[in-house]
Amino acid sequence: MRRPPMRKPRPRPYPRRSAFPAVSVIVPTRNEARNLEIVLPAIAAVRPAVHEIIVVDGNSTDDSIGAARRALPWVRVITQTRKGKGNAMACGFAAATGDVIVMFDADGSADPGEIPAFVSALVAGADFAKGSRFTEGGGSDDITLLRKTGNAGLNGVANALFGTSYTDLCYGYNAFWADLLPLLELPDVNASAPAEGMLWGDGFEIETVLNCRVAAAALKITEVPSVERQRIFGETNLRTFADGTRVLRTLLAEHRRADRRKKDRAQR
């Protein structure tokens, strides 16, 4: 299927951005103690050095907080306010003090050595640097044929709905300028959790939500080649069919949201 052209970015009212931004790396974690012992020192070894590493713990029972502090004494550790990866990410975003925010999984599948490439894409003019395993220079040691096929189908839906040219919708290694946070309109980290279920954006749909919202805002998106490695310790929480269905629902819901916003602006 032929991809539609990327939507033309709208003019940005943001302040002038630094050519040498301070980088905040957000690492959501739940029972990843053994992986953090390896991942955190590797992030700290990246050059140019990152400004801060924020581990957001989701009520781990394996002493992930203690492991993080032993592995890297200067790491910032906070506890998420509700449950879900999306809430963990939002808590990390809210706590970040850097100019650039990097989303980084704790399982060891992401390569810290790629962080400078993401930052370079932003400094070169992108608002959002989207990691891709399926663009030239990317790859994966972990993805199955079924997941790869499903990802291709979801890419097609996203590109048709939002006018994007994504090659890897379902990859969570991304970076963006911190001044975009108000535009993303993620759930307030201090809001109470509902009696049942989760707030929209608090769950694993967070990455798709971000991809949809930066596209709907016509921000400049640059894909960065990335090689996904196998998780170091433990087992993945991914569920191919359930997670694929959730991503599809998210795409449709975010498209409806974008349409409502567009109509509201037209009526003002």
Rank of each mutant, 00 (worst) to 15 (best):
T245I: 10
T79L: 14
R246F: 05
L181G: 10
L251M: 05
S18H: 02
A258G: 03
T29A: 15
Y166E: 00
Y14S: 12
I143N: 12
R256L: 13
F104D: 03
D105M: 00
N35I: 02
T167W: 05
R3E: 11
G138W: 03
E136A: 15
P21M: 12
H255Q: 09
S132V: 08
S109K: 01
H51G: 08
D202F: 07
V100I: 15
P5E: 11
K263Q: 13
S226A: 15
A68S: 13
I65M: 05
E196M: 09
A129S: 12
L219Y: 06
K130H: 11
Q230C: 13
S24E: 09
F20C: 10
K148E: 14
V75T: 10
R10K: 15
G86M: 12
A106M: 04
R30C: 07
A152W: 09
G201R: 02
R30Q: 09
P182T: 10
T144D: 12
R261Q: 15
A215K: 07
F241H: 08
E32F: 00
I143K: 12
P9V: 08
P4A: 06
A242M: 05
A175V: 06
A129C: 11
E254H: 00
A88K: 13
G84T: 03
F134T: 14
E37C: 05
S226C: 14
A124R: 08
S120Q: 13
E37V: 13
T250S: 14
T144M: 11
S192K: 11
R133D: 01
